[in-house]
């Protein structure tokens, strides 16, 4: 009674196709990745039906936190260093190379000039955990914010100004920011918002 048994093989699944899919997706995500950068504060922006995308580069971002703190950031690292040099020159300050390097790693910051050095002297991991008081602004249009804007535009004249405000930021803060920009004859801004569907039946005039 010798039954002929087929030789047993463990069931194998060909994983090759799955690998193909996995790596295809992986490639896609790597290519499209724009990393979330370390922001000075969490900002919850309002939404609008505007469909204009935020430009990718040459952005000067002024953020308004929910308690009215103002943060300032420039996207390119070389610009950040040049900006710091400019402001150091006009304010008669000096920054060490170490401080400059740390500064250039920060996407945005919100410290008065007097406290900036102290913050830059902190070890890098601690910098993100400190609560930032915001850059002083003033309704007269002459304040540290205006100085920073000037320094940044001197570093890179192509900068476009974007304002990113929190939902619950009060209007006076926004007004002060505007006053600081207008005092330098900057009259065109981008307000950063989340995308929102326009109401049904609404059509843009340009279409």
């Amino acid at each position: 009674m010798a039954k002929v048994r087929p030789k047993k093989h463990p069931p194998t699944i060909d994983m090759t196709a799955m690998t193909d899919v996995a790596f295809l997706l992986l490639t896609f995500f790597i290519m499209t990745a724009t990393f979330k950068s370390q922001e000075a504060a969490e900002i919850d922006t309002p939404s609008s039906i505007s469909a204009i995308k935020v430009p990718d580069d040459n952005i000067l971002m002024i953020s308004i936190g929910n308690e009215g703190e103002v943060f300032f950031g420039v996207d390119a690292q070389p610009d950040r260093i040049r900006m710091l040099d400019n402001i150091a020159e006009t304010k008669g300050l000096t920054f060490t190379d170490e401080q400059k390097k740390k500064f250039s790693n920060q996407a945005s910051f919100g410290f008065p000039l007097a406290q900036l050095k102290g913050w830059l002297d902190l070890p890098a991991p601690e910098m993100g955990t400190v609560k930032q008081p915001g850059i002083p602004t003033d309704s007269t249009g002459v304040s540290e914010l205006a100085d920073w804007v000037y320094a940044a535009r001197k570093a890179n004249s192509q900068l476009r100004i974007a304002i990113k405000g929190d939902n619950s930021a009060k209007f006076p803060t926004f007004k002060n920011v505007l006053a600081n920009l207008q005092s330098q004859n900057i009259n065109k801004f981008n307000l950063i918002t989340d995308a929102e569907e326009p109401p049904a039946g609404w059509r843009s005039d340009s279409e």
């Binding site: 204009i52 065109k188 950063i192 918002t193």
Partner: peptide, 22 residues
């Protein structure tokens, strides 16, 4: 990892032009 680390929805922007204050 890449899915979690990326921001897919890019924020939009609204242009605001204010009159010259000069």
């Amino acid at each position: 990892f890449f899915m979690l680390a990326t921001t897919l929805s890019k924020p939009t922007s609204m242009t605001l032009n204010v009159p010259d204050k000069q």
